[in-house]
Computed example of a mutant assay.
Amino acid sequence: MAKFFRTHATETALLVVIAMISLILSFATDRYFTIGNAFDLLNTSSVNIIFAVGLLVVLIAGGIDISFAVAASVVQYGVALFIGWIGGGNWAIGLVVAGCIGVALGSINAGLIQMLGIPSIVVTISTFNIFFGFLMFFTKGVSIYDLPDWLTTRVVLYERQMADGSWVEISLPVLVMVLCVAATWALITRTTVGRQLYAFGDNPEGARRFGINIAFMRFLAFGWLGLMAGIAGLVQAHYAQEVVPNALYGRELDVLAAVVLGGARLGGGKGTVLGCVLGVMLTQITQNGLNLMGVSPFAFKMIVGAIILVAITLSSSQIERLLPFRRHQGTTR
């Protein structure tokens, strides 16, 4: 345990902050520390966590992408039209189609960055507007409510009846989220390409001289985020039981704030899945607490902006200097 604290300074700090906020919220509202609220947090956080682990891979590789939420919206609509065209489908077909469209959109970003040689944030600002403009032009802003039963039927993994007769549940999005988190963790910590992603993000020129395929690293990182965005889009459609063109618009900043807060370095070469998940949970717990206390949802947007500012200003190395065990930290993973 002591070794974990020494080698995971940012994650430990996040755990402490989450515990402190949870303690404050437990006094501020009696609805916070309930099984129903905990289950609701898990279900509603799933999509953002799936987004976050995809974005983590891009940040580790030294890139940045703000188009993934809009890409997920494009995937939602594309899958809905495809399964309508084939007359139904199932979860396997839906996930494959969603993943393929997502990877294709991510690859567009990677290809433009590679060919044009311009910063990834510039490319993804452009594709953000292109994807969203195309989606709204094509759909005219019309939502799709007529979805197949397999997509709209709630899949309950665990449910429990409360003392007041109500039911609380953990649903399919949580399982999908766990699988995406596990797959991302395995990719970046248990494979050669994962180690190459860290090396590329930390020192692109050194990685190039070492023989790492730079183009492949970019396509892998942005393709992985595209895959996660595609899956998250389908999961969101399942959770909402409808496809709304602008439903995910604006999520990119929330997720970016959470991932950077979780220790991912905007310059690349650093970040962990655990820190990423904890960053999302911190932002979600904050939003949940504000909602329970009846605070305006616009206040959360102010908090997200402050989180981004603080997270960028206080780099991971600066944060670690504030911790007593900083001198012992010797790993990025």
Rank of each mutant, 00 (worst) to 15 (best):
A215F: 06
L157E: 06
Q287S: 14
D65K: 03
I64R: 06
C100L: 15
V122H: 13
N43F: 13
G250F: 10
A52S: 13
I118L: 14
I50G: 04
A182W: 12
R265Y: 09
N109M: 02
G223D: 03
A104L: 15
N129Y: 15
F138M: 11
A207E: 10
F219A: 10
V259C: 06
S126W: 06
F128Y: 15
A61I: 14
R209E: 10
K140N: 10
G206F: 10
V260E: 08
T10C: 02
R251D: 13
L220A: 10
L112F: 12
V176Q: 01
D65S: 12
F68W: 08
N129T: 13
T272S: 14
A183Q: 08
R190S: 14
A240T: 06
I303C: 00
F222I: 04
R327F: 00
A110I: 05
E242I: 01
V74A: 11
G111V: 04
W91N: 08
E320Q: 09
T139Y: 03
I307W: 02
P204C: 10
S171G: 00
I312D: 02
I125P: 09
L256S: 03
G62T: 15
N90W: 03
A182K: 04
V70I: 15
I49G: 03
N43K: 11
T272N: 11
V243F: 01
I121F: 15
G94P: 02
L278V: 01
E169I: 00
V280S: 05
I21A: 12
L220G: 05
V255A: 07
K140R: 13
A257H: 02
G226W: 04
